[in-house]
Simulated scan of single mutants.
Amino acid sequence: MLVGLCLGLGVAAASAHAQMSPEQAQAIAGDPAHVPQSLRLVDVPKPTGPAIALLNGRDLNDWQTWLGYRDPALTYLDKPGAKPIGAGQGSMFKMVEVDGGPALYVNGETWGSIVHNKKFSNYHLRLEYKWGAQRYAPRVDQPHNNGLLYHSGGTPGGVYGTWMPAVEFEIMLGSVGMVVPVGTHIGVRTSVGYDPKIIYPHRRYMVGGRTIDVAQPAWNVEASTDPERPVGEWNTVDLYVLGDRAIHVLNGVPVMEVHDLSIRDRKTGKKRPLTSGRIQFQSEGAETYFRNVTVEPIAALPRVVKD
C-alpha cells in the first residue's frame, strides 16, 4: 500500500488508488500531487520558409487511407483470424464543403486512418477542427474521439490493425492535447502530477512535475487544461515539433510538452530518437471536420511558462 501517494489527496484519491492493480499502482508511485497551472506560450518562432497546405481543397490524392476492423469493438482484442479491411477504402474520408470552404470530413463509423504522403520534421502544424453530430458504436455514449498523429511511420495498420505507429496529439472532447504513444515501441517523456479526478493513470501534464516515460500500463498523460470550445464550433490546434521534442497547443493555450521522442527496434531493442514522420488523422468513432491544415518549417521551439 503506497500510503505516501494518497496522503493529502483526500478520499477520492485513496479510492481511486485502491482500485488499481499492483502493476498500475507501481507505475505511478511517486507522482506528486497535481497543482493547477495557468500556462502561456512565449518566444514563438518565426517560420524559416513558406507554409505548405496539406489539403488541396479538391481531393485526397496526397493521402493514403487504411481501415481497421468492420466491427471496431475488435480493435483492442486478440482475435485470431480477424483481419482489418486494409488500404484503399476511402469512404470514411472525403473532401466536403462546410461553412463556406473545403474541409476534410472524417466519418468515424469505421476506425482507421488517413496518412499524408510526405514526411516532416522541424515544423509548426496548424489546423482547425470541429465535431459533427454523429457518434458510433462502441463509443456512441462516450466523448467525441479522434486524433492527430505525428511522426507516423512503419506499417499501415501496424498498431491494433488500425493505425500507423506514431505520437498522438489526442483530439477527444475534454482531453484535447493529451499525449498517447501509438505503439508500445514508441517512446515519449513528459512531466506530470497526480490528479485523482481523472481516470487511470491519473496523470496530468504539469510544468515542473515528475519526469516520466509514458508507457504501459500508464499509457497516457492528460492535457494540463481544457480550453476547447463547445461542440459545433471550430477549434485551432497548433503543434510545434523540433527534433525529438514537441509542444501541443489548443486555442492558443499550451496544454502539453513532450521530449525524448524515440522508437525502439523490435528486433534489436535499440532505441533511436524519433525526429520525423508523416501526419495522420484517425477515424475513431465520431464525425470530425478538419480545415486549413498547414505545415511551416521552424528552427526553434516556443517556450511554455507559468503565469
Rank of each mutant, 00 (worst) to 15 (best):
D260G: 02
R291C: 05
K267Y: 06
D265L: 02
F290N: 08
K267A: 14
L261V: 00
Y289F: 15
D265T: 02
R272N: 00
K267V: 14
H259Q: 05
Y289Q: 11
T288E: 00
I279L: 04
K271P: 13
L261I: 09
E287D: 10
F290L: 08
S262R: 05
N292V: 11
I263H: 04
E287Y: 06
R278M: 01
F281A: 14
P273S: 12
A286C: 01
R278H: 11
Q280N: 15
G269Q: 13
S262L: 06
R278L: 03
F281T: 07
F281S: 13
R266V: 09
S283M: 07
G277N: 09
R264F: 10
R278A: 01
I279F: 01
R266M: 05
S276A: 13
R272A: 10
E287P: 09
G269A: 13
K267R: 09
R264P: 10
R291D: 11
E284H: 07
P273T: 09
S262I: 01
R278I: 00
G285M: 10
G285H: 09
R264M: 11
G285Q: 08
T288H: 01
L261A: 08
H259P: 01
D265F: 02
H259M: 04
S276K: 03
I279K: 04
E284W: 05
T288L: 06
T275P: 04
G285L: 06
S262K: 11
R272T: 10
S276C: 00
R278K: 11
Q280E: 15
E284G: 02
K271R: 14
P273Y: 14
A286D: 00
S276Q: 08
Y289S: 11
T268D: 12
T275D: 03
L261T: 08
R291K: 12
P273W: 12
F290D: 03
K270C: 15
Q282G: 06
G277Q: 13
S262A: 13
T275Y: 01
R278C: 01
Y289G: 10
F290V: 08
E287W: 02
R266D: 11
S262F: 02
R264Q: 15
E284K: 07
K267W: 12
E284C: 09
E284M: 05
T288Q: 04
G269D: 13
